[in-house]
Design a protein around this nucleic acid. Sequence first.
DNA 1: CATCGACCTGGAAGG
DNA 2: TATTGCAGGTCGATA
Length: 285
Amino acid sequence: MGDLRKTFHVRDYDLDATLSSGQAFRWQQLGQAWEGVIGGRWVRLRLSKGDITAEAAKPVRDWAWLEHYLQLHFNLDQALATFPDDEPMQNAVASFPGLRLLRQDYWECLASFILSATKQIVQIRQMVMLLSKRYGEPIASNDDDPAFAFPTIKVIAACGEKELRECKLGFRAPNLLGAARDILDKKIDLQRLPTLTSSEARKELMKLHGVGPKIADCVLLFAGGHQEVFPVDVWIERALQQLYFPKRRPSAKQLRKFADTHFGPYAGFAQQYLFHHARVHLKLK
DNA sequence: CATCGACCTGGAAGG
DNA sequence: TATTGCAGGTCGATA
């Protein structure tokens, strides 16, 4: 039959940092708990004393989807050991030891980052929520209101630009629409992405309307699990600039080159630490 | 190639 | 309370 609850023992897992660090946009903190939707399922997560307790709305027979999403089996120590031994990196890790990378659905991740262009995390969440409420399937939750799955490619592709703009997407509306239609038109095959190398997958993703290097890299890192990929956005640019080149002012291209060689095989994971640390603790600009 | 403006709009910041 | 400046990017045009 399955259970409504399940407890996972974890070591060094900072749920708060992980779910609020701007890699996923479907999580809401209520008191000590986090509520969100993973695929077609609503869940409530709570971390206490080294245990993550999950609560579902309907009995769950197999929790593999959650373990996979949260990457519970991931060997954190092994990854951390590859990070460069310099002060900025060590500080970033020290301020959120236990920050993790999630493993998200390709389409939801892609769509979310298409929406992320020149928006703050709160606003991105807002857009994702509006879209889900309006175009996603309602699913059972333990709250008074139902939850909503993220809308499918097909449903988005069938929308008009104008209705998408009503979800506060602004100029991102045609980009989301274009990408959804490109996928339906088989300009690229999302199903095939996991079989490709990161540079091949990157090229594929960039064929989509409104998808450039930054968004492609986010999808590779947050959905594809390509942990060596290092998305460069304005925050990371500022953080690298301030932390590693306080005197000079290197070009974006030089920063990218530095990042590609400096951070090692888990560069993307390192990036997540730098990003979160910078966002929470640093006055940038 | 590097640089530059256009593209929407909500919600802060400083007058 | 009205105004201004800005925000996890991408695309196309320009020397």
